[in-house]
């Protein structure tokens, strides 16, 4: 199996999540200057959620391949591998549903709440939508804890670390952290404050036009 197929998508998913993190961190990005800090947080959150969705879909694909034999999408040997974790007959599913599908559905729902709020922050429902996303993401904490225990202690030949599963966990933890931050800032009254530009920034902007 080529390492491009093995780790290429993983690098891509992690890069998407990192980009989302940079957007949400409110570091200076000239293209996003006009966005309020909260709007940037929502955009960053949405990007991370889509990274999580893509990584979840990849784990589902690995699961599908493992049902029919080996997988060309992830390593099957060593400590860091997917075969023993996603291919485990007992722990790779939740009430008969592969974890990848659960991840796809969860990140889609989170993405819908986030994108709705991002597209119309002034709407009455926008602020509660952040709460809905928050409550929806919380069951992910015990699920992640359980899956890490499974990886480290319960699967055949444990411990194993499944890199794609870990990227999904990272994505969900980042979402929970950002939602916590967004709710905190919203409750402090910083929901949609347009950033004030300095004179120099205003001049530079006018020159660009």
């Amino acid at each position: 199996m080529s390492s491009t197929m093995e780790y290429g998508p993983l690098t891509f998913f992690l890069a998407v999540m990192a980009i989302g993190g940079v957007i949400a961190s409110n570091q200076k990005i000239s293209q996003l200057d006009e966005m309020s800090p909260m709007r940037r947080r929502l955009l960053g959150l949405f990007v991370i959620e889509m990274g999580g969705l893509a990584a979840s879909a990849w784990t589902w694909m690995i699961h599908n391949q493992l049902l029919q034999g080996g997988s060309t999408l992830c390593a099957a040997e060593g400590v860091v591998q997917c075969g023993s974790v996603i291919g485990d007959p007992t722990y790779s599913e939740f009430f008969g549903v592969p974890w990848g599908i659960i991840g796809i559905l969860a990140f889609s729902a989170l993405g819908w709440f986030t994108l709705s709020a991002f597209l119309d922050m002034k709407a009455d429902w926008a602020k509660p939508y952040v709460d809905y996303a928050w409550w929806l993401s919380l069951p992910g904490i015990p699920m992640i804890a359980w899956l890490v225990i499974v990886e480290l202690f319960l699967v055949d030949g444990a411990p194993h670390i499944c890199p794609y599963c870990t990227s999904v966990h990272i994505s969900l933890i980042a979402c929970i952290y950002l939602l916590h931050l967004i709710r905190k800032e919203r409750d402090a009254g910083n929901w949609d404050i347009v950033p004030k530009l300095s004179k120099a920034e205003l001049l530079a902007k006018a020159r660009k036009k």
């Binding site: 879909a57 599908n64 391949q65 029919q68 999408l73």
Partner: peptide
């Protein structure tokens, strides 16, 4: 509609590369 479009792309990729048996 945006989420549905993203989901459609994801499903197409899954079905092309590793469809569920």
């Amino acid at each position: 509609f945006s989420i549905s479009a993203i989901m459609t792309v994801v499903m197409i990729v899954v079905w092309v590369l590793a469809p569920p048996p």
